[in-house]
Design a binder for these strands. Structure first.
Lengths: 145, 145
DNA sequence: ATATAAAAGCAATATAGTTGCATTTAAAAT
DNA sequence: ATTTTAAATGCAACTATATTGCTTTTATAT
């Protein structure tokens, strides 16, 4: 694999964002995880490397640029995951299913599962769809059996 | 229509809950609305008729008994709506679509729109589905045109 | 009328997120 | 290399939502 940090630096520059410590660290953390990551977790892991407010602003900037997307968990807490290709500042294309495991509480982006089209009552104009499934993830249902 | 308060009182008794002022008022408010109602709104409307904590506990009790269901809005704030028949303390059956209007911010329960079944990756066990659509509700898309 | 479990009230605290402003710094311009 | 400057960070204070422990009140059964 190519140098990861270099890739992240390019990504920042491409989006008109300066190459800063907190930003690189957030990308580093998010890219190393197989599920969406909560703000509180990020805050804890980053420790004193960045102020809480900085973290919030980094996340907001990344979301606006289409670098990450936000998904709320069952408690309403923000979780973030790196976007698939095809997202940009102009539009997110993350209309995949999010799977919320009742056991390990991880939130998986099921990129392969598309949200089916929907018939809504007359007059309603659907702009975006957000489907959250809950249950047991592959790893946890394994353990139970 | 039959006396509404009497109906609510029966509902409480049926669920082993005492007939109290705050509880009746919450039912009164929720039943008079055409969309899900946020905790902050309820708190404001109830004013000094009930303590904040009481309100939270009423909502929690109702949810546990299957009288109301909770849906989080895009900010992660809890909103509540009276359940359709068929919900109970043992299980909720509110797997309808929630429609979140970008303009008036009302959350509609689209009871008639069922969530389509879903194919998920091997190993994942889906327990519940929660589909939130955003866009313009019938009333708001009317106004725009 | 009384007893009692349940509910409500009150105070304090937790958690997530925001705002305004001063300081620092990455990167552009010289 | 230095300087400049817009962008980013840090800090302090604050807001909103939600929770916990404990005391008092009350709906209901006896």
């Amino acid at each position: 694999m190519e140098n990861k940090t270099a890739r992240f630096e390019k990504l920042l520059v491409k989006n008109g964002l300066k190459r800063t410590g907190p930003r690189l660290q957030v990308l580093e953390i998010l890219s190393g995880r197989d599920s969406a990551t909560s703000q509180p977790y990020l805050e804890q892991v980053m420790g004193k490397n960045a102020d809480r407010v900085t973290l919030y602003r980094v996340l907001q900037a990344f979301e606006e640029k289409g670098i990450i997307h936000k998904v709320l968990d069952q408690q309403g807490t923000a979780n973030y995951a790196i976007c698939s290709d095809g997202c940009s500042a102009h539009e997110h294309h993350d209309e995949h299913v999010h799977f919320n495991c009742d056991n390990c509480h991880k939130i998986y982006c099921l990129d392969t599962v598309k949200i089916p089209a929907l018939k809504v009552p007359a007059g309603f104009k659907v702009e975006h769809l957000n489907l959250i499934a809950t249950g047991l993830c592959a790893s946890c249902s394994d353990k139970v059996n």
